[in-house]
Design a protein around this nucleic acid. Structure first.
Lengths: 241, 241
DNA sequence: CGACTCATTTGTTGGTCCAGATTTCATCCT
DNA sequence: AGGATGAAATCTGGACCAACAAATGAGTCG
């Protein structure tokens, strides 16, 4: 079920901090065990590095590398003199994860991401209509105007994304919003592809406005139709491929 | 827009590998710059640690900690005596990210996660019905039977999750499947909460079967209704809170 | 009450040593 | 002579150590 992960986070079913090859991994597993079995919560502090050294009979550099791992995972925050504090910034880390672009956006990725957004943004029309307030609408219209005023395509894309993120936030579902935020870097790259100043000032702005109009009069069918066509626009960029 | 990230991945708008406080972060930023501006692709190899040391005028341990960071992010895979190879295992890392349970599932989290699943699994009925094959249905029924035969609640939950994941895979959208996989650990914990042997052998199995029956006769309304009530079951676990 | 000192803790550095992979190259057989 | 073979030198990451720098909390003294 779990794919090959050579040096990954120690799985839940691991033995008692058994060394899975590397000494750092062993320390990592033991710290993990200490956290879960010690019932440590967010805000609690881990022992000092040197204490962990002697407790696990490891060198300080080994412990430090394990710490660096936990830091990368957003599980601890370590400051000089104060030590390592347990935090939960994994969502931010997941965000960072995808801001590192190693592969180009493919047609397939475009379809998949936009398909996902279509599912979210058209499927949640009921929740959106139930929760939307006049202040939400004015916010969204303001964001839309800011998009037109943007000085560059990059900046406009950010406003475009802000528009959609703001819309998704109305659903009131933190998990959905988190996932949307995680995908931010990828969505941004999609938006910047094949977007010209004309399309922003024209189509994108008008489509956003039409979507908001539909939301204002609680026209679910129009909202879904407009959103769907809006998200499917931009496909032409890949048509030649 | 981007939240506070103290020691995070260097953002795209960073200056030229300027030290954002930590020396490790500086090296990290420079390696990142080397990758993106050097046009390094997946499969390419990074210079040796010692070469990076002298190139960045840093100690080996500093470079090693930066490497450890990249490893945690799933960007490089480093093997002894071979070196660091660029990979893209960020999805697996995102998966690992949430297998580290630091916080307890709250009623709010339950609602949000199940709300997200409802959106995905009921909203994609059109795509599922369009793509589903008889082999998919027989697979799903087999998984359902395996769930009943499971020896423990934990194991049964895994089959339960496999059932839903298999269903979602029919959509044919890699992004949605990836996200579903990322949420696997959280969903598993939700499933294991308040699930007894009786509910598995009884309700869960029957609900799955009913969903498959609806899929077999392409009854979208029934499919959505059954899935909705299926996902909303288990809410009682939190009702007392 | 404020400034100051001090001790503790993390950050960083430059090393050592080791085991294993890789490469080199001399040797040996055909 | 030419290719195969194997041993040795070299290279590389893994683990570790000692030491110093910097930051900061805590206690102390004026």
């Amino acid at each position: 079920m779990i794919p090959d992960r050579e040096t990954s986070f120690p799985g839940a079913a691991d033995e008692i901090a058994r060394a899975s090859g590397s000494a750092v991994d062993a320390v990592l597993a033991q710290i993990r065990q200490m956290i879960v079995e010690g019932g440590l919560k967010v805000g609690d502090k881990l022992p000092t590095e040197r204490e962990l050294c002697e407790r696990f009979a490891s060198s300080r550099n080994t412990v430090r590398e394990a710490m660096r791992m936990l830091k990368a995972f957003g599980v601890v925050e370590v400051r000089p003199k104060v030590g390592a504090t347990i935090v939960d910034q994994r969502m931010n880390r997941a965000f960072d994860l995808f801001s590192f672009n190693v592969t180009e956006i493919s047609r397939q990725t475009f379809d998949d991401i936009q398909g996902f957004r279509e599912l979210i943004e058209t499927g949640s029309v009921t929740q959106i209509f139930a929760a939307i307030q006049p202040s939400d609408l004015s916010d969204l219209r303001e964001i839309n105007r800011e998009m037109v005023r943007a000085k560059s395509v990059i900046e406009a894309s950010e406003h475009d994304l802000r528009f959609h993120t703001r819309l998704v936030s109305i659903i009131g579902n933190k998990s959905i919003l988190d996932i949307y935020r995680i995908m931010t870097p990828v969505i941004l790259r999609i938006m910047q592809r094949g977007k010209t100043r004309r399309t922003i000032e024209g189509e994108t702005f008008r489509e956003h406005e039409a979507i908001l109009d539909a939301a204002e009069r609680r026209d679910a069918l129009a909202f879904q139709y407009l959103m769907r066509t809006h998200l499917r626009a931009g496909l032409w960029t890949f048509e030649d491929g």
